[in-house]
Write a protein that binds this DNA or RNA. Structure first.
Length: 203
DNA sequence: CCCTGATTCGC
DNA sequence: GCGAATCAGG
């Protein structure tokens, strides 16, 4: 395979979109990610940084969840879910149809969940506010989601559901997930909210 | 271990 | 110019 204008064009486009070298290589076919990276450098479009443009436009959405919820006294119940953590969006590649009539946004941190009693619910990422940053990051990420189907999910792809399961406008994020976790960086940010910092007297 | 991009250097 | 091997990092 050679770098035809067309292939280079695809490379540029995808790279600009923030696709990883491996994904681009896979798309082009006949080349390895090394080839892609090498070409990217030769084209001089590796680090397009100078005009102060943000660099975190790449697939590295360093989502900054909400690390400072003044958990002073409380030992920040950093969600250390064992095998299968099932936060709010209960996507789980096994049962994607938990809440049928759910609108596009899987992040339905609304309605206080029907909690049994005044249980000191754990890390429950329920009715709290996701940091604007994390939310923005999520929106960004979801635009470039790989839109995988249930069967395409692997142990290391983000399993965050996007869209309405009742329609064909539904898919899974699919971006590389964080080691061990079921979601990508951005989605982990909204999925595992430590605790509410919101005096939910909301009503 | 999985994955990223960055660099080197023989071809 | 090309890209495998290697490096450095998450």
């Amino acid at each position: 395979m050679s770098w035809t204008d067309e292939r280079v064009e695809t490379l540029k486009r995808m790279w600009a979109e923030g696709q990883s070298a491996s994904q681009i290589a896979k798309e082009l076919g006949g080349v390895t990610r090394n080839a892609v990276i090498g070409k990217v450098h030769r084209l001089g479009l590796s680090n397009r940084n100078e005009d102060g443009t943000e660099m975190p436009a790449a697939p590295a959405p360093e989502a900054k969840p909400a690390p400072q919820p003044a958990a002073a006294a409380a030992p920040a119940p950093q969600p250390k879910p064992a095998p299968e953590p099932a936060p709010k969006p209960a996507p789980a590649a096994a049962a994607p149809q938990a809440q049928p009539a759910q609108p596009p946004q899987p992040v339905n941190f609304n309605r206080r969940p029907i909690v049994p009693a005044g249980q000191p619910l754990p890390p429950q990422p329920s009715a709290n506010e996701i940091s604007p940053e994390a939310l923005a990051s999520v929106r960004e990420v979801e635009k470039r989601a790989r839109k995988l189907t249930l069967m395409e999910l692997t142990e290391r792809t983000c399993k965050w559901p996007i869209g309405d399961p009742a329609t064909d406008k539904f898919w899974f994020c699919g971006l590389p997930s964080t080691a061990g976790k079921p979601y990508c960086e951005a989605h982990v940010g909204v999925a595992f909210q430590p605790m509410s910092s919101r005096r939910d007297r909301r009503r």
